[in-house]
């Protein structure tokens, strides 16, 4: 039928793995934002949910790194991390091989997306799923943008990927949701872990919520690395989501939570 939902959320492993080390009030407020996102996603009655993540060397590696990838497997499993470490139990997730194949075929008209019939979910997909699909009922199509191993895809191509996802979703009879997952400024898994450039994050989220394409695409990777760390490269998934949705965004929650190593975000965007 069309794209019926678009939202973004953080996916840092500390959100679950170090949940007990955040202040109770902060954690609860963020979790409430995620719960609101879950309810909105469910209310959109999606036949399938595209989880667009920035994978972290769980599946894709520098031996053969796709700029864009999308899943068309029967099923997936995760987390690839130790479930005790991530504090998310293992699950097998239902895929959408036929729909995935049709979406990918359409996207290929304008973006050279790689496809994958195997995919093991790391925290980039599992942390969002843990909150947005706690009972593992949804049908999932994973998608990935390489935000880890440079050279990285340019931001204007991330925008084009979003446009292609939208076109493909609108051409399918199913109801499709899109959730972009990533971080804004962060320095994950390094000694700088916990550093967050809140002003930069708020500026980015303002550009995102206005869906100001030129402003979002104006960041250079040099600036992003300097101001937002290597984790900042993940703004690509949020930009792609904005391109697909086309409307204005509504940031339901944003707050830096250093022990989670990211400015924690939950937001939706109107589909126009």
């Amino acid at each position: 039928m069309s794209l019926v939902f678009a939202g973004i959320t953080s996916h840092a492993p500390g959100i679950t793995g170090r949940a007990d080390r955040a202040s109770e009030a902060q954690k609860n407020a963020f979790y409430a934002g995620l719960e609101r996102l879950r309810a909105a996603l469910e209310a959109s009655r999606p036949d399938a949910v595209i989880i667009l993540a920035a994978e972290h060397f769980a599946n894709f590696f520098m031996n053969n790194m796709p700029a864009y990838a999308m899943g068309m497997g029967e099923e997936y499993d995760g987390p690839i991390e130790d479930p005790e470490w991530l504090r998310i139990p293992h699950r097998v997730v239902k895929g959408a091989p036929d729909l995935g194949r049709r979406l990918i075929a359409n996207i290929l008209q304008t973006v050279d997306v790689a496809y994958a019939e195997e995919w093991r979910f790391d925290h980039g997909v599992m942390v969002p799923l843990h909150f947005l699909d706690p009972n593992n009922r949804m049908t999932i199509i994973p998608a990935n943008i390489n935000c880890q191993g440079p050279p990285l895809t340019p931001l204007h191509r991330a925008w084009a990927f979003g446009k292609a996802i939208r076109r493909a979703a609108d051409a399918a009879p199913e109801r499709i949701a899109l959730v972009g997952t990533g971080g804004i400024s962060h320095w994950p898994a390094t000694p700088d872990s916990g550093r967050i450039n809140e002003a930069w994050d708020r500026e980015f989220l303002d550009r995102w919520a206005r869906n100001d394409k030129d402003a979002m695409l104006s960041y250079t990777d040099e600036e992003t690395y300097r101001d937002a760390g290597q984790g900042g490269f993940e703004i690509r998934t949020f930009i792609t989501t904005a391109a697909a949705a086309g409307g204005k965004g509504d940031v339901w929650y944003y707050e830096p939570i250093p022990i989670f190593a990211v400015g924690c975000t939950a937001a939706v965007m109107e589909i126009v």
Partner: peptide, 29 residues
């Protein structure tokens, strides 16, 4: 251990993860 290694071995030699804070600074955790 990563902070200590900066003191022991010097700065990160390759890759994209050069440290941006001081090894004596605990940012979070």
């Amino acid at each position: 251990r990563m902070r200590d290694a900066i003191k022991q071995y010097g700065p990160v030699r390759a890759g994209i993860y050069a440290m941006t804070t001081s090894p004596d600074e605990k940012v979070a955790g």
